[in-house]
Design a protein around this nucleic acid. Structure first.
Lengths: 192, 192
DNA sequence: CGATTCTTTGAAAACAGTCAATCTGTGTGG
DNA sequence: CCACACAGATTGACTGTTTTCAAAGAATCG
């Protein structure tokens, strides 16, 4: 379980002797089953969470009870609610597992300590944040510029590696359309 | 002109003796007039840009020639295209001035050097990035969850300080609706 | 196999987009 | 200072897309 994370780290940064162990010593392993919550609306999120196996979704629920998926995350991705983490306010989001999943958790306090002591790690976090920022910007642009069909196509291209693991109703939610509309788009495009 | 930026810095971080001057020495002042480009699609963006006066917009143009506004920025905000900056690829965005504006520019190379030498500055950048990330996440959530009317209301609340400086057609573009639709929404809500 | 969840389909209603015309306000040149 | 031009905002009629609601059809899991 932890070895997936270790591999990820080795791939990204080179650590000084002893640092590997230091990181390892504050890591907490966690398994969650399909449909199980990692974070529930109203709770305060306090971790940095890395997925070693499985798939989770982050979503909000509007006043009509409809779910709106903000993002997905799979193996080798980080997840969590940065807003709640930094503000220490109750989260407006839910995170739950789409598949049985395994995670490596760090309490944010521990993780900050690690980042402070290990510049390479701190730098890695900055890189990830930058990349997430860019990805979000592109998603906003897509939402503004593309039709539902184009957004779906782009989604399949961009997330080809795990698009098939996700129920269509959830993809629809992510794209901001109803499951019925997505079903019709698929029918349309399969004709061609 | 530069004093606006200096004030901003003083407000955010405390600098060691000499650091102020070091920052100042690599800053470049720039004025742009209304409608003038700061960045044009196809060019590579190489700066970190701080606005001391005025207002700019970042937008893309789709294949039909329609503009889609990704974001606005005013005094005391940063602007630019992080994607182009980090990838060194030509930008897909345009940035131009909505009002006559004044900026403090740093070439990214210089700015990185400064961040490397001044940990407090580096930390500030991280904070800004985190906050931008959260703001974008909230925008995505709003786009998914809210009706056009709700999005407009939220925009007015959130950006009350400069919403009036921006033409309605641009607000419509930002919200992902046509100017006509926004006009009708305004008519509706003013009735109540 | 039965139960539950997910997907598809249909028809009607709601909504936003398009196109074209008019109105309004601002700023410029005569 | 006026008149005109121009850009932005509004309005109306029409079209097209998406949602909604309801029901039937697959697929999945214990």
């Amino acid at each position: 379980m932890y070895d997936v994370f270790q591999k990820y780290l080795d791939n990204k940064i080179t650590l000084m002797p002893g640092e590997k162990e230091k990181i390892r010593s504050v890591a907490v392993l966690k398994k969650i089953r399909k449909r199980q919550f990692l974070l529930q609306e109203g709770d305060v999120w306090k971790y940095d969470a890395f997925i070693t196996k499985g798939c989770v979704r982050t979503y909000s629920i509007d006043e009509k009870g409809v779910e709106h998926i903000i993002g997905f995350a799979i193996e080798n991705w980080w997840t969590g609610d940065r807003e709640s983490l930094l503000s220490a306010e109750p989260s407006r989001f839910n995170i739950d597992a789409i598949e049985d999943s395994e995670l490596v958790l760090f309490t944010h306090t521990n993780f900050e300590m690690l980042c402070h002591e290990i510049p390479a790690l701190n730098n890695m976090v900055l890189q990830i944040l930058q990349r997430s920022f860019i990805a979000q910007q592109n998603r906003i642009q897509a939402a503004l510029s593309f039709t539902a069909e184009e957004k779906y196509k782009q989604f399949l291209l961009k997330y080809a590696d795990f698009a098939l693991r996700i129920p269509q109703s959830m993809i629809a939610s992510y794209l901001g359309i109803t499951p019925e509309t997505l079903s019709r788009i698929r029918k349309q495009t399969s004709k061609k």
